[in-house]
Design a protein around this nucleic acid. Structure first.
Length: 541
DNA sequence: GTATTCTGG
DNA sequence: TTCTACCAGAATACG
């Protein structure tokens, strides 16, 4: 049983503050003897692009840690960091940490880029249990049986809303005796987590994706976040006014046609106007909370029946979405220091192994509509000597499915280089590719996407606005024409039932606890996850 | 804080 | 018989 300091088994702990140059040099000499060094940084904020370094902690042995305070005098802090240069320059070191991307980004702002490899305990837990929670507090309690000092004890709770709410204090103002305990403990705990996770990575057979994908990716993401991207603020300000005006026009038109003014941004109020007052659909569906559904798919069906008010509602929705989520939000996220926007990538968030992006989310910038696409013009090169280059896989998920399933017809279609949806339509409708109509291609495309997600006849019918009979016919033909795909889906579900997980080409596993559930719905979800997850990760090289 | 909606892959 | 396409982040309304 591993032990963590005083509170667990009364094992003595030694957390030492190291402040003078002489003591720091002695610490560096001690750390030089070790290949694996656990480290953590304390900072003034939670945004690494804004944060100031308050201190660094190190540990190489459970129960022992050093804390090196970094003063507000930035020149002195750079001097201190300079003393660590021999360690950071050593390519043989392995830097252990929890969410190392954050600490490395903070260090990069001070010009420090460690040469050694990374062992990130957060990423270790991510590949061991992709859908669990993994804050350090929770990992410590779960794997070490120890509840760490809460940060609130040092700097108070996060600022609540309204007057009188206390704002969270700064790490900068905490006295060294307290911060030493907190920071030392973080490095200590993280080192012990590493010792727990390392054998687990072997047992679960996920070292490949951990060593070859996740850990090397950390430094790449640090570079990307640090670099950021330039935003044309003036362009967005102009566009905001245009959207404001056009949204207002659509809004007024809605009120005029409805014969009543209300909050158009409220789905609840809109539903009551459309279905109680105007009675546009006597069989309108309600959500589980009892209000009418007013999502885009519902509104599009009303529009198809010639309700002109719905066009204006859709326009209002589109324009206000663009304005509030992108056009007005992006300029506020420009970093005053760099004049650029720096997203934060979530490397251990999505259960499928994909990245996530926030503050701002740069993975959902509009592209489908003309007025949405316009927003992309605001992302510009740093100067006239640079340009932005865009590269994208073509149909990567379907290619992965073709490769894993080895379906001869699907592989042949990709090898021939023809449009995959046209090729699919030709097979499903049994016509030459030249005779595939737009309609046929559109439906085949929907089937191709639906297949990846485990969609059935009901979903396809709803999506395409066709009968369930027709949808079933299309799907049956699809399965007949691409027998390898059907076989792959059957095999995948069977594999999941027997093993309790599915895996990607890189060896990332997703555990499916409900795959053998007696509940049809619950089991169905797990089965669709089983089919869906493996197609999400390309094989590198 | 939860629900709904909409943006992307 | 059942409910119906996976994975995310963010804005807004509303209690």
């Amino acid at each position: 049983m591993l032990t963590v300091d005083k509170n667990i088994n009364n094992v003595p702990h030694t957390y030492t503050a190291v402040e003078t140059d002489a003591d720091i040099k002695q610490l560096v000499n001690e750390l030089k003897k070790h290949t694996e060094i656990c480290f953590d940084s304390e900072t003034t904020g939670i945004d690494a692009n804004e944060a100031e370094l308050v201190g660094l902690s190190f540990s190489v042995k459970p129960g022992e840690a050093w804390y090196v305070p970094c003063p507000a005098d930035q020149n002195r802090t750079k001097e201190i960091l300079g003393l660590f240069e021999p360690l950071f320059a050593d390519p043989k070191k392995i830097w252990i940490g929890q969410n190392t991307k954050y600490d490395l980004l903070v260090l990069k702002w001070y010009g420090i880029e460690p040469a050694g490899n990374i062992f990130d305990t957060m990423l270790a837990h991510y590949v061991i249990e992709p859908d669990g929670k993994r804050s350090m507090d929770i990992l410590s309690e779960k794997y070490l049986g120890y509840e760490p000092v809460h940060i609130e004890e040092l700097i108070g709770k996060k600022g609540g809303r309204g007057a009188g709410a206390k704002t969270q204090g700064s790490m900068r103002d905490v006295e060294i005796e307290k911060i030493k305990e907190y920071a030392g403990e973080d490095a200590d705990i993280t080192l012990q987590l590493k010792q727990v996770f390392e054998p687990m990575l072997q047992q679960k057979e996920v070292e490949k994706v951990f060593n070859e994908v996740e850990n090397p990716l950390v430094k790449v993401l640090v570079d990307m976040e640090f670099e950021g991207i330039k935003i044309d603020e003036g362009f967005l300000n102009d566009y905001s006014k245009e959207l404001e005006k056009d949204a207002k026009t659509a809004e007024e038109s809605v009120y005029k046609q409805a014969g009543v003014r209300f909050n158009l941004a409220s789905p609840k109020q809109l539903g009551e106007v459309l279905f109680d007052k105007l009675k546009l659909d006597p069989s309108a569906k309600k959500t589980k909370t009892g209000q009418y559904q007013t999502g885009e798919d519902v509104l599009l069906k009303l529009a198809a029946r010639g309700n002109s008010i719905v066009e204006d509602i859709l326009t209002f929705r589109e324009l206000t979405k663009l304005k509030s989520t992108y056009v007005d939000a992006l300029p506020q996220l420009i970093n005053p220091k760099t004049g650029r926007v720096h997203t934060t990538y979530g490397q251990a968030v999505a259960v499928t192994g994909r990245l996530a992006s926030n503050n701002p989310n740069l993975q959902n910038i509009p592209v489908r509509t003309d007025r949405g696409k316009e927003i992309r013009k605001a992302f510009i090169p740093r100067d006239k000597n640079h340009l932005l280059v865009s590269a994208d896989y073509s149909q990567i998920e379907l290619r992965i499915v073709a490769a894993i399933s080895a379906d001869p017809n699907m592989c042949q279609a990709f090898k021939a280089g023809t449009d995959i949806h046209t090729a699919t339509a030709a097979r499903v409708y049994n016509v030459p590719e030249k005779e595939v109509t737009k309609e046929m291609r559109y439906k085949a495309k929907s089937v191709n996407f639906g297949i990846i997600y485990g969609q059935g006849a009901f979903g396809l019918a709803d999506n395409l606005g066709i009968s369930r009979t027709e949808a079933k016919e299309i799907i049956d033909n699809y399965k007949k024409e691409f027998p390898g795909i059907q076989q792959y889906m059957d095999n995948t579900i069977n594999f999941a039932r027997e093993n309790g997980y599915v895996e990607t080409l890189m060896g990332r596993k997703r555990w499916l606890r409900d795959i053998n559930s007696a509940n049809f719905t619950v089991r169905g979800f797990a089965e669709r996850n089983a089919i869906n997850s493996p197609s999400r990760e390309p094989l590198l090289i």
